[in-house]
Design a protein around this nucleic acid. Structure first.
Lengths: 154, 154
DNA sequence: GAGAAATACTCAGTGCCCTGACTAAATGGG
DNA sequence: CCCATTTAGTCAGGGCACTGAGTATTTCTC
């Protein structure tokens, strides 16, 4: 059997795209704070006091990964983590002042980086780009919990 | 400053897309062999005897990662690795019979998985999807070695 | 032909990402 | 009220991805 053409394999393209992004982020945004870490900060700016599970849901990280990311952010003093007095299972998260400052700084740089990253595409193409990727990712995520949105959604 | 909208951040979308793909691969293709491992097998089917560096270049893996992936494939008996007698720095790679069988099997399953993964898109949209991602990824990779393709390409 | 530069690979360290097994806390039904 | 179930979080383990440092081999240059 002949070899497959990987340039028509969405998984391979997704991996290459993410690697390319990683590199650009490292040079244009930050060598300390990673893109997933920024996503967590960004969520907590809008919704302080969220618990770990919900943060993970917002940014697309599973329970284990979100725990690691949060532990790093906490170690750097960018967020505080306290047990919920009303539900001893939960940890409530909140940015520190330093965390908010970092988020502001990185938001500016991220916008610049996105400009460079998307430079090969026209404005209309960018819209299509977002739409297509979102649709594929959403559909695949939907396959995980079959029927979740069909019956009573929790 | 308000939070940014991550659904318009290509890096965030790329990560989510890759995660979605990882999950689908795991359930529809293989729990043992990963997508990057398959990419290596696929390259060696076409070009047996390649060295590690070139394999990495073909599939988009850096020197360290390709070494790990190859060591796993070798441990599973899917490929052989021998020193190049003509250049003692290189390791030459070649699939075993078992490696070729595995590649054949996974190629069939991967094709099925891609159908499911891309199901939300029409045929024309898939073409656009590939084209846009490829252009962005290629351009970003080009930023790494400035001028490489402008002067004599090695 | 000898020293300098380039090349292929390895190794240690960090971070993301998942699964499966586990603990602790809350909830719900009998 | 008590026990079973569910839920939030932790932990161990495996794999991908990068950087920077180090080794061995080859090649280039004088």
């Amino acid at each position: 059997m002949a070899a497959a053409d990987l340039t028509t394999h969405p998984g391979h393209l997704a991996r290459r795209l993410q690697q390319a992004h990683y590199l650009l982020w490292n040079t244009m945004v930050s060598e300390e704070i990673t893109s997933p870490q920024y996503a967590v900060l960004n969520t907590l700016v809008d919704e302080p006091g969220l618990d770990q599970r919900t943060v993970g849901e917002r940014v697309g990280l599973d329970r284990s990964t979100v725990a690691e990311v949060i532990s790093r952010l906490s170690r750097r003093g960018l967020l505080d983590k306290v047990r919920d007095p009303e539900d001893g299972r939960r940890s409530l998260l909140r940015l520190t002042d330093e965390g908010e400052r970092t988020h502001r700084k990185l938001t500016v740089r991220t916008a610049r980086m996105n400009q460079v990253f998307l430079a090969p595409l026209s404005a209309e193409e960018r819209t299509v780009f977002f739409d297509l990727i979102r649709r594929v990712a959403d559909a695949a995520e939907g396959l995980r919990n079959p029927g979740e949105s069909l019956v009573a959604p929790r």
